[in-house]
Amino acid sequence: MRFQRVLTVLPATLLVLVAGWQAIRVQTHDQSPWVGGGFAMFSYVDASVYRPLVAVTIADPSVAVLVPEHMSKEAERLLSTPTDDRARRFAESLATEAGETVHVEIWRPIFDADALVVDAELIASGSAAGS
């Protein structure tokens, strides 16, 4: 009976706890509001698909480093939950691929609706030397 009662309240409890936890992480860890069970879709400008991921070589910052297809999942994770440490590890992987020292930055879009200007704010970055 007790097990049945636990089962009955489990889905709703999980929904509320995960949504609350996600909302806290959005405020404290720059997590994208759109993913992770927070049900904040279609309400925040800061969607991970709008977050620019900039990867350039240190030697010439005007040279962009393309993210290979097999790193797309890792890139998606970095955009959704960016930290400096994760950016550095991503840069390490890219540097290994490119054979050059790479710098990676994750930005967040900021929208001024009156001026119709989309700007960006740096939220995580990291560098790594190529092997």
Binding site: L7, T8, L10, P11, L15, V35, G37, G38, S80
Partner: peptide, 24 residues
């Protein structure tokens, strides 16, 4: 969790809810 869309999360809750319902 870092990348999944909300509908995937919601479907997980619904499978649990359906299981709990069928066991009641």
């Amino acid at each position: 969790w870092a990348t999944i869309d909300n509908h995937i999360v919601l479907s997980g809750y619904w499978y649990l809810a359906l299981g709990a319902s069928l066991l009641s």
